[in-house]
Nucleic acid binder design. Structure first.
Length: 198
DNA sequence: CAAGTGATTAGC
DNA sequence: CTAATCACTTGC
């Protein structure tokens, strides 16, 4: 096991970290200790204070966004559209409300468990979206405020992709956000079959 | 392409 | 208190 250290998450450059997260493995053991894991292939950066789309825009501090102000390496989970959870990694030092949304992973270990939770479908649909991967990996709101250096969920340093292997583009589902909707703050692995949109 | 779903938030 | 909104998914 090769857990990413605190320093990985507390660096200044959130956009760089969003790219560095590609290729890392998200591991969430079941109650009986089986490793359910997937490699991150798609992320989006949310730059807190200045980013109109971020829940923490203008450093808005509410009951929900409180977690985004925690130290880097904390997990921020929120519930959306009455049905889905979204899994975010808090970035930066304490009180810097930046986060990276994990949008897609490639299933690695115990794929049968993910199939059970998601229902029968092609493997490439199992975790190719932020709501889907939460179901497949068993993430719910009790993971909010968990620490990635703890034992409930963590990231391992599987591999690092080079700039040539990474593509970027505008973020999904935020067309209302005027100039911030255009920012190329979504990153994915170019030839992965498991990203949410081609 | 549209509906479904309920927490969260801003605005009275 | 009420109403509008929403970093999505699925099945027409």
């Amino acid at each position: 096991m090769n857990k990413l250290p605190r320093e990985f998450y507390t660096r200044e450059d959130t956009l760089q970290i969003a790219q560095d997260l590609l290729g890392k493995t998200l591991v969430i053991p079941t109650k009986s200790g089986e490793r359910v894991s997937g490699m991150i292939v798609e992320t989006e950066a949310y730059l807190g204070a200045i980013d109109k789309v971020a829940h923490s825009y203008q450093s808005r501090r509410t009951k929900r966004t409180e977690t985004m102000f925690a130290v880097g390496g904390t997990i921020y989970i929120f519930f959306i559209y009455g049905m889905y959870f979204q899994f975010n990694v808090v970035i930066g030092k304490m009180d810097v409300p930046h986060a990276v949304l994990i949008r897609a992973v490639e299933p690695l270990e115990n794929i049968e468990i993910m199939r059970q939770r998601r229902g029968e479908m092609p493997d490439k649909n199992l975790t190719s979206g932020p709501g889907k991967l939460c179901i497949a990996l068993g993430i719910d709101k009790t993971f909010n405020n968990e620490d990635l250096l703890g034992n409930r969920v963590w990231l391992e340093n599987e591999k690092t992709f080079s700039v040539e292997e990474i593509a970027s583009g505008r973020r999904i589902g935020i067309d209302y956000a005027e100039e911030f909707a255009e920012k190329p703050w979504r990153f994915w692995v170019k030839d992965s079959l498991f990203v949410s949109r081609k």
